[in-house]
Measured scan of single mutants.
Amino acid sequence: HHGSGALAALHADGPHAGLPVTRSDARVLIFNDWEERKRSEPWLRLDMSDKAIFRRYPHLR
């Protein structure tokens, strides 16, 4: 199991509170979210491209 239990660094406060600090933090969040959702949506594709990251977390651009 590759990303399970990996912890992402999140901004503690300010405008980005609760959001990932780096792209690799964002990838951890996206992976964990996908892993949760694919139980009920097995067709869901995992997209951890930069484009997917920016779409979801525009502050990382």
Rank of each mutant, 00 (worst) to 15 (best):
S24H: 14
A26K: 00
H11N: 08
D50A: 08
M48F: 08
P58I: 01
G18V: 03
H11P: 03
F31R: 07
M48R: 02
A26N: 00
R56P: 01
L29M: 10
L60K: 00
R45L: 05
D33A: 07
L7D: 07
D13H: 11
A52Y: 15
W34D: 15
E36D: 12
L29S: 02
R23W: 10
H59R: 00
Y57R: 00
R61W: 15
L19F: 05
H2M: 13
K51W: 12
A26W: 03
D25K: 11
A26R: 09
R27A: 07
R23Y: 15
H16A: 06
I30E: 00
P15W: 05
H1S: 13
S24M: 15
R39W: 09
D25P: 12
F31E: 04
A17R: 14
M48W: 15
A17S: 10
S24L: 08
H59P: 00
S40G: 12
L29I: 07
P20Y: 01
D47V: 03
R27H: 03
G5P: 13
L7W: 07
L44K: 04
G14A: 04
L19W: 04
H11M: 04
H59M: 00
L7G: 13
E36F: 12
R37V: 02
W43V: 04
L60S: 00
A12T: 15
I53W: 00
V21M: 10
S40A: 13
R56F: 05
K51L: 12
A12N: 12
Y57G: 08
G18M: 10
L60M: 01
N32K: 14
A12W: 11
D50N: 13
A8R: 03
W43C: 12
E41Q: 08
I30W: 01
D33N: 07
R55G: 11
A26T: 00
E41M: 10
Y57H: 01
R37H: 06
A26P: 01
D25M: 03
L44W: 04
R56H: 10
I30N: 00
H59K: 00
L10V: 09
R56T: 10
S4Y: 07
L46K: 01
H1L: 06
A6C: 15
I53S: 00
N32S: 08
R56D: 03
R55Q: 13
D47W: 02
D13F: 08
S24G: 13
S24N: 13
W34E: 01
A52I: 07
A17W: 06
P42L: 03
R45E: 11
G18P: 04
V28H: 06
R27T: 04
